[in-house]
Design a protein around this nucleic acid. Structure first.
Length: 588
DNA sequence: GCCGTTTTCGGCCCGACTGTTTTCAGTCG
């Protein structure tokens, strides 16, 4: 028997089913149900086969009896009968037309039925020989051709940006908008960027201004705008020269809260909120709560949620995945907030591949309100120029001592990001590691070794009595390499057993642990850290992304080591605990 | 197809913008 299909594959089947049914003209509500199931299934932390074993398929949000039966069909046979049937009627390629801007279900249906287009390649040919224009008219054909061109130039892969790239782009746009837009009172990033999704499709900005018009005009005229895709009194969508779309919504400040909620989404969260409004006899829009002629605007998100008797769900948790019910009952669990973090346990300086001095990093961390910062430069074996050996660590200690004398009570801790070698050993002798305040271990090389080998290396590091933290446990790069094929349940269990901290590396290019792994680690009893992995002063602010991951994983603050004050944090390190597993560490 | 602090049936989010069969359907977020 073949391996059962992955959650991603099952999600893709439901997504395709939704697209094809929509093109066929089925009930929009049925389509929405399948589409929502596809999105939910694609992000579940546990394989659907395992969920089914537990008899819990029906408890997944958006999965009822009919969808559960289709999931079982897929798990058992690798196929879904309904999908195979509709594919005989509408080729799967027709669903691909929906990816073309300005082609929705209605145009896709006409293109398939009346022009005989079976996919994007067909469409290109039908445009070229005039068949599209003959059926839909010249105007429609021109519009579709432009959409197709935009699709082709839309960049590699799925065109989504890693979170960090999108964040930098949004920051840049907002800065230029502040300089250029008259009457702009506030501007902020919303959408998937604010929800700290790992990748971002396009950049969504919201702004407040008593007169939205001039702000919209200024946005459309910003340098870097390749073309304006749509523009009205309160909204504008532009395509930037680098091939990324950016959307702006502008309303007067009294609507800020409802606008921010509306654009932050996600769409299913918004729909739930609007259902709550309907239940009260009104409706919720980006302007506020409307009942008949009367509008109650919300200047803040807090006011909007309070109106419905809810707590405010952190943006990364807004997905209608149970957070609405919890917030209504006042039972949202406390999750890590940015202000809970009192220090950072993983950062680099010019001693290895960082760009700032120890002192510069320390001053910046102190200015962020932190009480401590661990400088964890690379060890020599990574092959990174300038990795530290035992001798240079001694020299670095002298510099750190000087900085601490100057900046007390702020404290710089001397650590290392020590390389886990191909044989599972560490890159520095135990005597050198023992002299440090803490040790962060990392697997950087040999990530493509097989599952057994990489897992054994990581387990060896976790068991080492002088390893306090396992950095970026999977080694994945967002939008880049997938990371090692680690047996994550085994790593998590061993980290819990030995008291080794698992890191949420907050570098937006890493976000590692991912949210689902972080959730499993919390469930297993692990202690986590949220660290910037900064290589420059500006990188210290990465922590907000790590906090986003922790929030989506619903990590409580008490499970994050660096929420503790310095002394309590140090006392919890494996090396400083009497109950640590294995041989006693050497005396400090 | 899903779902329940009015519901196990009868609902299902809402507005902005575009192009133009010039009153609204289609698409999008």
């Amino acid at each position: 028997m073949a391996m059962p299909p992955t959650n991603a594959a099952i999600a893709a089947s439901f997504g395709l089913l939704a697209d094809l049914l929509e093109i066929r003209g089925e009930s929009a509500f049925k389509v929405r149900a399948y589409r929502r199931a596809a999105e939910t299934l694609g992000t579940l932390p546990e394989p659907l086969a395992a969920i089914r074993e537990r008899g819990a398929l029906g408890r997944v949000a958006g999965v009822g009896a009919a969808i559960a039966a289709k999931i079982e069909d897929l798990l058992d046979t690798g196929q879904m009968r309904q999908l195979e049937e509709i594919k005989r009627e509408i080729p799967a390629g027709v669903a691909g037309l929906l990816a073309v801007p300005d082609i929705g279900p209605k145009r896709a249906r006409r293109l398939h039925h009346e022009v005989g287009v079976g996919g994007v390649d067909d469409l290109r040919a039908a445009l070229a020989d005039g068949r599209v224009a003959a059926v839909l008219g010249a105007g429609e054909a021109k519009r579709i051709a432009e959409g197709l061109a935009a699709l082709r130039s839309g960049g590699a892969d799925d065109g989504r940006l890693p979170l960090g790239v999108a964040d930098a782009l949004a920051g840049d746009l907002m800065e230029r908008l502040r300089a250029a837009a008259p009457g702009l009172e506030r501007v902020a990033a919303a959408g998937s960027l604010r929800r700290c999704q790992e990748t971002v499709g396009d950049v969504d900005l919201v702004a407040a201004a008593e007169e939205p018009g001039p702000v919209v005009e200024a946005f459309a005229a910003l340098p870097g705008v390749a073309r304006v895709e749509l523009k009205g009194p309160t909204r504008c969508r532009v395509m930037l020269e680098r091939g990324v779309a950016a959307d702006l919504w502008v309303l007067p400040a009294r609507h800020w809260g409802s606008l921010l909620v509306h654009v932050t989404g996600d769409q299913y969260h918004d729909i739930r909120l609007r259902s709550l409004a309907i239940a009260r006899g009104g409706r919720l829009t980006e302007y506020g709560y409307a009942e008949g002629e009367r509008l109650t605007p919300f200047a803040t998100e807090e006011e909007l949620y309070a109106f419905f008797g809810m707590q405010v769900p952190p943006p990364p948790t807004r997905a209608d995945a149970g957070e609405v019910e919890l917030a209504l009952r006042g039972e949202l669990p406390a999750v890590l907030a940015r202000d809970d973090l009192r220090g950072d346990l993983h950062a680099h300086s010019g001693w290895s591949d960082g760009t700032a001095s120890v002192r510069e990093m320390a001053v910046a961390a102190r200015d962020w309100g932190h009480a401590y910062l661990a400088i964890t430069d690379h060890s020599r074996g990574l092959g990174i120029a300038n990795g530290l050996d035992a001798e240079r660590l001694r020299a670095q200690r002298a510099e750190i001592d000087r900085v601490n004398a100057e900046l007390a009570p702020f404290r710089v801790l001397q650590g290392i990001e020590v390389e886990v070698r191909a044989d599972g050993g560490l890159d520095l002798p135990d005597e050198a590691l023992a002299r440090l305040d803490l040790v962060v271990a990392a697997v950087h090389s040999g990530l493509r070794q097989g599952r057994e080998k990489v897992t054994a290396r990581a387990l060896a590091a976790i068991r080492h009595p002088l390893v306090d933290v396992l950095a970026h446990p999977t080694g994945r790069i967002v939008g880049g390499r997938p990371g090692g094929d680690f047996d994550m349940p085994a790593l998590i269990a061993e980290a819990a057993r030995t008291g080794t901290v698992l890191e949420i590396d907050a570098d937006p290019g890493r976000l590692d642990l991912r949210a689902d792994h972080a959730r499993e680690a919390v469930a297993a009893g692990c202690l986590l850290s949220v660290d910037s992995d900064a290589h420059a002063v500006a990188g210290l602010d990465n922590l907000r992304f790590g906090v986003g991951v922790a929030q989506r994983a619903r990590v409580p603050p008490e499970r994050v080591l660096n929420t503790l004050p310095l002394d309590a944090m140090l006392a919890r390190l494996k090396r400083n605990r009497g109950d640590a597993d294995g041989p006693e560490g050497p005396p400090a």
